[in-house]
Design a binder for these strands. Sequence first.
DNA 1: CAGTATCCCTCAAGATACTG
DNA 2: CAGTATCTTGAGGGATACTG
Lengths: 148, 148
Amino acid sequence: MTKPAHTSNEPCPVARASSLIGDRWTLLIVRDAFDGVRRFSDFQRSLGVARNILSDRLRRLVDAGILAVQPAREGGAYQEYVLTEAGEDLFPLVLALRQWGERQLFSPGEAHSELIETATGEPVAPMLPRARDGKVLMAHDATVRKLA
Amino acid sequence: MTKPAHTSNEPCPVARASSLIGDRWTLLIVRDAFDGVRRFSDFQRSLGVARNILSDRLRRLVDAGILAVQPAREGGAYQEYVLTEAGEDLFPLVLALRQWGERQLFSPGEAHSELIETATGEPVAPMLPRARDGKVLMAHDATVRKLA
DNA sequence: CAGTATCCCTCAAGATACTG
DNA sequence: CAGTATCTTGAGGGATACTG
């Protein structure tokens, strides 16, 4: 289960990822899933998205192996959407998006929701690329090697 | 210059960031910018995007303070688009997108372009969220604190 | 070369009604 | 509640022609 069917054939991982999750709603659904949302109506209320669109996006996420459908726990005959391993693996991406937004899209002092490390109660530290030697890696310290 | 004008008023940084850069082309333009592309036609050729769309996206990126317009270096009367500081700050996000794509959207052995650490020639190590104590932070070790 | 101006078309998205 | 079905709208996007 390494590559979902029906992904684009772009050789660039950025492009391929972008074509799968780079739309208006998908990452927000994933964000909610990390936040514990599991049911259709809860996603719908939280996002204010049209039902047919939500239905479509959930199906795509399931097809892509990012969400899985489970029978509801509490006796309900209905199902729940939970992150798979590939879905949980999106955590760094959602965190990067969140942290960039926090840094660049809010005025100083403007309130925003925040991700808190449960163990300490402190905000999660900024996630930065590191070189093998542990130093912070800047954009200029890396280059793309195209495939042969 | 901490918050670009005309961003959405979402209190969630993920939503706000998503509404700014979460479309089909914007992150690919940024990716190309990291890759050294600076000129209109080069973006256009690289992406195959329609000119009017490219024009619109570049303007939005400039308005958002992610790209800046500079006079071309080599005598040309024309201009170049370069990443600002806020734009360079997108490096972790683009890297997270790339690395997730590499992990989840390619079959084992399937070729893809790759980000290489210049100093060592090695692929850039996976970027992971870290707790203050240096341990890898999993999704379940953090929770969103909504604003008061 | 670096865009702008049009025209056109498709699909994302919203609204609403309906079904198990 | 959890969706599906249908209709309509508008924005996103492609192609082409035009301008400085």
